[in-house]
Every structure is written in structure tokens, then in C-alpha cells.
């Protein structure tokens, strides 16, 4: 599965469009990590626990999007976009969407 965030897949031509595919996941923070991040919040700098958490969650959202694309018979997703929204206190939704296409 090829992903790109531009309108085409460079070096290939799009043969067929399958429409919008989406993938999302809602994650809550983990108490242990929250505690460590709270301590780290005093001295500032990168909060590695949260970076990892969001990275994992985003990978899962992408994975779900790719699954949807695969089920329609696509072999690539173009124009992939991400969005993050906090739905509740301490929880965030990570969302990925794009256009499923077949390229050759």
C-alpha cells in the first residue's frame, strides 16, 4: 500500500478512484505516563511518553485507513490528511483520511 500526501503518486499513474477512506482512533492518557509527564511538565522539554502515545495512535489510525482502502481494492491512498481533536478531558481522537486509488 502506497501512501502520499500529494494529489498523485509520483512515478505512477492513477487508473481508478475509490473515494474517501478514513481511519480513526480515540485514545486516553495512561495514569502512569500522565504522572511522569506531570513531573516533566515542571522542567519543560519534550514529553516523550505523550510523543510515543500519539505516534502509536496515529499509526493505528493510518492502519485502519489502509484496511478500508484494501477492502475496496485500492493499492494506494493519495492526499492523506491528519486531524486531531480532543473529544473529552484527557482523551484525543486521531483521524486520518485520504482518497483510495489504484495506481500502475
Amino acid at each position: 500500500m502506497i501512501l502520499s500526501n500529494i494529489e498523485t503518486v509520483p512515478g505512477k499513474t492513477i487508473k481508478e478512484f475509490f473515494g474517501v477512506v478514513t481511519g480513526s482512533t480515540v485514545r486516553a492518557k495512561h495514569i502512569g505516563r500522565d504522572f511522569m509527564a506531570g513531573l516533566k511538565n515542571i522542567i519543560g522539554g519534550e514529553l516523550k511518553g505523550y510523543t510515543e502515545l500519539l505516534h502509536e495512535a496515529r499509526s493505528q489510525a493510518l492502519e485502519r485507513m489502509m484496511q478500508e482502502a484494501r477492502s475496496t481494492g485500492a493499492n494506494a491512498v493519495v492526499n492523506v490528511r491528519f486531524s486531531t481533536s480532543s473529544v473529552a478531558q484527557g482523551a484525543a481522537e486521531l483521524f486520518a483520511y485520504g482518497t483510495a486509488v489504484r495506481v500502475e
Binding site: 502506497i2 501512501l3 502520499s4 500526501n5 500529494i6 494529489e7 503518486v9 509520483p10 512515478g11 505512477k12 509527564a37 516533566k40 511538565n41 515542571i42 522542567i43 519543560g44 522539554g45 519534550e46 514529553l47 516523550k48 505523550y50 510523543t51 500519539l54 505516534h55 496515529r58 493510518l62 492523506v80 491528519f82
Partner: peptide
Amino acid sequence: PSVPESWTVLEAQLVTGSVVISLDY
């Protein structure tokens, strides 16, 4: 968002990079 014409692309792939950063107290 477009590829310069002089480039010959062999492969394309999405890459991401993220960081969570905070201020000190």
C-alpha cells in the same frame, strides 16, 4: 505539492514526525 519535472521518482512514501513539548513551570 508537486514534484519538479527534472526529478525521476522511483518510489513515494508518506513520512511523519511528531513531538510533544512543554514549557517549564
